[in-house]
Design a binder for these strands. Structure first.
Lengths: 233, 233
DNA sequence: AAGAGTATGATTGTATACGATATCAGGCAA
DNA sequence: TTGCCTGATATCGTATACAATCATACTCTT
């Protein structure tokens, strides 16, 4: 294996290139609270008191409140004025629905991305796919999951549409971090890789029809892998 | 016309029943700034200084910052840490894209809504439609637009899906308030009514296929009415 | 004169103080 | 005992104060 390949590895796994958000107190708080909610560490219906979070994270109320704002807009908590913030529970129906919504946007995303992607971005996508292949063969689930995220994120970026990027990124976080389907993917590494290959080949051929089909399959299979029958809507 | 009908009018036009958000300083600021941006009163690329907004609205920085948070998550401004908030401009491409995204979600929404709507909600939807008919005949564009919003909002609520509700509500605000298509609707009151009738009838018959078709037509026509050719994607 | 370095002012990030509102417990009356 | 009223406490909403960061302009050096 040539040396240059290892350099690529380093570059590609440094996802600071993709996540151009500079970390800040409210952002960190938001991320942490979001993950805690999705993973069930904070129960549905529980009241989030500002001061409790302040003590827990050793910060003042201002950044806490800003994190709460973000959580509310992402639908994870309800803020009732003068009452407090309450954790919204995701039912199985909600998660099942989410796969349907994600499928609708993701198919649009691949269509637009194929039309709007630059040659440079296409090369990056190829690198990302190659790395997924590499990590799948190695059986490195963690790195594989990371590249999975990057791969999809690159497609989202290529759509040139901020809303699509934001919503799909949220869905990605949801479907990945929810306690319900946590850890399921490791049993299906090869299967997932094959689905990504289909998507990537469609990109390489700039075949929108094939990309849509492959994406639909990918999401539907993902839904089933997470334990949701397709029939449930 | 029986007296009861006027009572219904009053109830239905009181959209506080639908918008269960209690007004607050940050929320009001958010709404006002959002509309100003969408209507072009605040130019794209312009920097929003917290203190300037404070003086303009006679409030302190805290609610201003919270409004900024919301604007950022809706994609209307970019907040660069320690630098400031910058207005993001919507290109024609962005707005054209938005119609496509809205179509995708709105068709899902009517499917789910038909499946999940209660009899009571169905009755309310009928009242809303009847009022649209009434105001169209009267030629009252303002009231008609308001009922238009309510009608769609009721469908969103019937989906029982928070994310769908939030995203579609945003799109509704965008496509209604953007300076580009401001005021176009008054020329097409009857046309719009006919489209809503098709949607409503599909609901009454609980015919998902027909509802999807009618919704697609409604959005596509709306896009054309706003001056966007369907071919542009 | 051009560029780097620094100092100053402006703006944002965070913390805290104060006032408003809601919750809850206890007492009083029916 | 039950219901309502009232006050105390807690929590939230807003304002302000202080700290950190950034932008700008000026000076000094080459």
């Amino acid at each position: 294996m040539p040396t240059i390949f290892f350099e690529v590895l380093i570059v590609m796994t440094d996802n600071s290139l993709l996540q151009n958000k500079i970390s800040s107190l409210p952002q960190d708080l938001f991320n942490r609270l979001r993950d805690d909610i999705l993973q069930g560490k904070i129960a549905a219906g529980e009241k989030l008191t500002e001061q409790k979070i302040c003590k827990e994270y050793q910060v003042s109320r201002t950044p806490v409140r800003e994190a709460f704002q973000k959580l509310e807009l992402d639908g994870l908590i309800d803020i009732i004025p003068n009452r407090g913030a309450f954790v919204v529970g995701l039912t199985k129906q909600d998660i099942s629905d989410m796969y349907e919504l994600r499928k609708a946007y993701e198919t649009i995303a691949v269509k637009w991305a194929i039309k709007r992607i630059t040659d440079e971005e296409m090369a990056q996508l190829e690198e990302a796919y190659d790395l997924m292949e590499f990590y799948t063969m190695k059986g490195d689930t963690t790195k594989m999951l990371q590249m999975n995220t990057n791969f999809h994120q690159m497609i989202y970026n290529a759509t040139r549409n901020r809303m699509l990027q934001h919503v799909l990124t949220s869905y990605q976080v949801y479907t990945k971090n929810t306690k319900i389907n946590e850890g399921y993917i490791m049993d299906y590494l090869e299967e997932v890789l094959a689905e990504h290959k289909a998507i990537f080949m469609a990109f390489k051929n700039r075949d929108m029809e094939a990309a849509v089909k492959a994406t639909e399959t990918h999401i539907e299979n993902g839904k089933q892998r997470a334990g949701f029958p397709l029939s449930l809507e």
